[in-house]
Design a binder for these strands. Structure first.
Lengths: 159, 159
DNA sequence: GATAAAGATTGAAGTTGTCAATTATTAAGT
DNA sequence: ACTTAATAATTGACAACTTCAATCTTTATC
């Protein structure tokens, strides 16, 4: 009776309507549970370490608190995550010049190198996407981008 | 220089091409990190408990091992997760009739009720999606669905 | 009937999450 | 200036999730 819960598209018809948009997005989100985990595991990074490496701008040191916000987690988590990056020689803490409470993070050469490899790997388009017609991919990019734009606009409006 | 890593769309132009498809999908995936967590939290469920509730078909008991596969985790995790669902009176273990090694899971009335509320909440389309033109939503549904279809076809081909 | 395999559980160790408390430093109020 | 806030980072306690190895029961296989 209610098998749509397990798989919203199980009984879908060929032609989809605008009402199918969110259900399909849900299925996509739920099915991609371990994608980033696997991506990071290839470089012996935990998911959060991967996010940290991704978020540390090689050009500009980032305060711990800024990283916590970027990773949407408590500041206390960042300490341990950065400890491990530092232990592996991927990142380093430095004192902020103007405010001594702040510790900023920088990537080491090793960290920068890993960051580039991680992102190159991440950006490898999966076959399930390249297999699609160019026009379909272009539309998907446009539509999904529109959702992200809209969400950004909403968040901006809250402030 | 390499700020695309942090946000692939930071410097994007208005017109997107097929090559932007995967980068945009990545951004969408990474930005939705805590969506399911928040969804489950509204019903005092942990993310995995939520997945379990979602995956237990009310019509058909599911073996622990099948749940482990569905949730893409080790069988040993399921024990603890189901323990808590059982403690809350949402699910129950039953012996399989044909194979006494197997324990199958069923939802209680309370569990079924919660499952319906959870899914109803999950299916509430966010404003960022409803705000889009109908044609955009329809195209997004079609394109994303095509990716999922393609991936299913790939997985099927592996066997 | 002995051995192997499968299903579920347990225990140990590591990662991630929240929360409260602590320390050091800066900002604000009077 | 001096006390009081507030901020940045850390620490410790505890729960959730993950993997892995080991165990136990039950079924399959030879």
């Amino acid at each position: 009776m209610d098998d749509k819960l397990k798989n919203p598209r199980r009984n879908r018809v060929k032609k989809l309507s605008a009402d199918d948009c969110w259900p399909v997005m849900i299925e996509f989100l739920l099915s991609q549970k371990s994608w980033w985990v696997a991506m990071c595991a290839e470089f012996d990074l935990t998911p959060m370490q991967g996010h940290a490496v991704r978020s540390i701008d090689p050009e500009k040191p980032v305060p711990m608190s800024a990283l916590a916000e970027e990773l949407a987690c408590d500041a206390s988590n960042i300490t341990g995550i950065v400890d491990k990056l530092e232990a592996r020689g991927l990142a380093a803490r430095r004192a902020d010049e103007t405010d001594r409470r702040i510790k900023v993070l920088v990537l080491t050469d090793k960290g920068r190198h890993l960051r580039e490899k991680l992102w190159a790997r991440t950006m490898e388009t999966p076959r399930a996407v390249t297999a699609l017609p160019e026009e379909t991919r272009r539309r998907l990019a446009e539509a999904l981008s529109a959702v992200l734009e809209e969400r950004l606009a909403e968040e901006a409006a809250k402030r």
